[in-house]
Amino acid sequence: MVSVSSELERPQAAAAPTREAAGAALRIQDVSHGFVLHNELLPVLDDITMCAEPGEFVALLGPSGCGKSTLLRLVAGLDRPRQGRLLVDGEVIAGADPSRVVVFQDPTLFPWLSVWRNAAFGLQARGVLKQHRSRVDDVLSLVGLTEFARVYPYQLSGGMAQRASLARALVNDPRLLILDEPLGKLDSLTRLAMQGELTRLWRQRGFTVLMVTHDVEEALLLAQRVVVFSDRPARIRADLYVDLEYPRRRDHPEILRLRREALGLLGLEKNW
């Protein structure tokens, strides 16, 4: 059931040697979580144990509503697990921290701030904006929004808003980038372009990525490892290694094989 490729290679580490230590190591140990709904405990995560090596790109794949986003909230430190532990670089996650930034499905830009101010929010919140003003300009040019720095969010298209949201995360130089279906609401062309940008940024900067998606192809094109979850309460069904060079082609035989396997694990093998 679990396909394990040979030794896991980390091509991005070779691509960006200066940033080798930029990524954080994540350990999720025996984590179970649930919500109280109508006085009953609704189990959402069931005994999840997994890890992500520094600089690794891990995709979490599963049916919608299975609890992937809940796991991301735990990793981000927005919620505490009912059981188990989450560790980043050996330390238990005690709360939200700018070294672990989340990009949500909705861009959730602050509508009262211009794109530049949105991107600068993290630095300003920590009181270091004055020393690092140029970093805001840098990330905006990285995501191609330099010309739109003074514009308010309502004036942006969906793809631009999501890029601004990415810039707002990247300005903090995160060691772990947490992506909750970041491309889920984009049109298919913008989505393809953004997938390319995402891998480029990751290889350039070397942070660890944890990305939730329910798009099998997206997971296989972007990630080095795809963790497949069952329906709620989420259990890990498989850990697929995608040992391919970037940029990847969606018609590569290995991608097609893994895609079939992943869809099979999700109970959808007849639908492809």
């Binding site: 921290d97 700018p98 602050f110 929010f121 993290g122 919140a125 920590r126 707002r168 903090n172």
Partner: peptide, 22 residues
């Protein structure tokens, strides 16, 4: 929206910042 608070918290905002800036 609680989503604004979530975003601000992961970006390193403390309580004071959440009130004043969000």
């Amino acid at each position: 929206q609680t989503a604004y608070y979530d975003v601000a918290r992961t970006l390193g905002a403390n309580q004071r910042c959440l009130v004043l800036r969000v």
